[in-house]
Design a protein around this nucleic acid. Sequence first.
DNA 1: TGTACATCAGTGAACGCGCGTTCACTGATGTAC
DNA 2: TGTACATCAGTGAACGCGCGTTCACTGATGTAC
Lengths: 216, 216
Amino acid sequence: MSETADHGARAYHHGDLRKALLEAARGIVEQEGLDAFTLRECARRAGVSHGAPAHHFTDRTGLLTALAVQALEERVAAAEARMAAAGPDPLDRLKACGLAHIEFNIRHPRLDDLCSHNGVTDHSDPAMQAVFQKMTAALVDAMSAATGQPMKPEKEANPETLLALVVVTGFAKVFNDGMILRDVPERERFGRALALASDLLDLLDSAFRGRGVSAD
Amino acid sequence: MSETADHGARAYHHGDLRKALLEAARGIVEQEGLDAFTLRECARRAGVSHGAPAHHFTDRTGLLTALAVQALEERVAAAEARMAAAGPDPLDRLKACGLAHIEFNIRHPRLDDLCSHNGVTDHSDPAMQAVFQKMTAALVDAMSAATGQPMKPEKEANPETLLALVVVTGFAKVFNDGMILRDVPERERFGRALALASDLLDLLDSAFRGRGVSAD
DNA sequence: TGTACATCAGTGAACGCGCGTTCACTGATGTAC
DNA sequence: TGTACATCAGTGAACGCGCGTTCACTGATGTAC
């Protein structure tokens, strides 16, 4: 009945405890929130003694950092897949990218918290830096193509780019904090939110197309 | 030298420990973040034994709830003052309202965390409900006046209203998470952010004025 | 195929820590007379 | 003005708790011969 039932016989060694711990950690963070995460609860969920994680992660921060990296990689992969499916039009691709990020943030609000929260993860971790860089590069490319202006990461964005970034980031927070769609039944909330987000991005899209996109 | 130097003589009774505890709590939350808040540290900062807070707040949650209420009242007062100073034009007033909320969120990001974070404060507290209701009512009024449409709180917002809400909320998060203006010297960051926010709201403003504001 | 042995990946007891909360206490304050 | 007394607002010791981390250990696994 338990998820380890068919492994019950080989008791002592786990197989892939590292993976199991990451799954447990993700479960805690997504279901109970970052505050509820403890190494001990994580070990408990993985069905293992609380000393065991030390064999796979240097410490609490190490485990949470690995989880954040996993989440960021998932986010980037989703955005890239959506953009590839969107076809060649740069504004279509930008919208697909925006929607993908919004969807990730409203599907996994606690993972977004984890990645945004300073102090609980190690931002100097090489894997962390790599995935951050990958995410930034993808965004810069999409923006450059959509605005027709080469966008340098170190320079500040033009108003249109900023607006797009703000809308994507803001919509997820507005939804996750319950400022909209509060009274919609739980099973409809997600779909309704995605539809609203799509409308909002269309509004931006048509504004960009209508005016021609300028950099000032 | 200490802030209580001139009260040093009358040692035993504090004067207004409730207020002092709230100030200490605010200092901790704003400087170190919500995670760093403990009743004991709070008492330490107020220069009082760790059992003392129990005479003024029922428990940890009670103190944090009082702090959140204080912060929300400050936010609402600032928004109302800015709107009053903005004159009669509904769109000017809406912009003033939006800027006031953005300014509060970038000046006090941790207080915004505190108010958004479920579980650490008591949302059923009467003072909490009152100030939330006041804030919502002010927003609905401003939106209704600006769009010319009576907006019912229980109905979902029209796209323009949603866009305004999203931009205000999103800009603060984009800035606070370091997605923009990361390399600007600390003493310039705040002013630059406010100027950017103002530009962004002007962009919305002119879009609203140009199209005429419609509800669909 | 069998045996010896090194390595790996767990266990579980123990550590010290800071926390929120409780409680008997006591010094200071204010009020009644 | 002086005294008795109730109330208030602190103190500081004590409680139990769960945490992260460490460590000696041991059972399982894989490899060499």
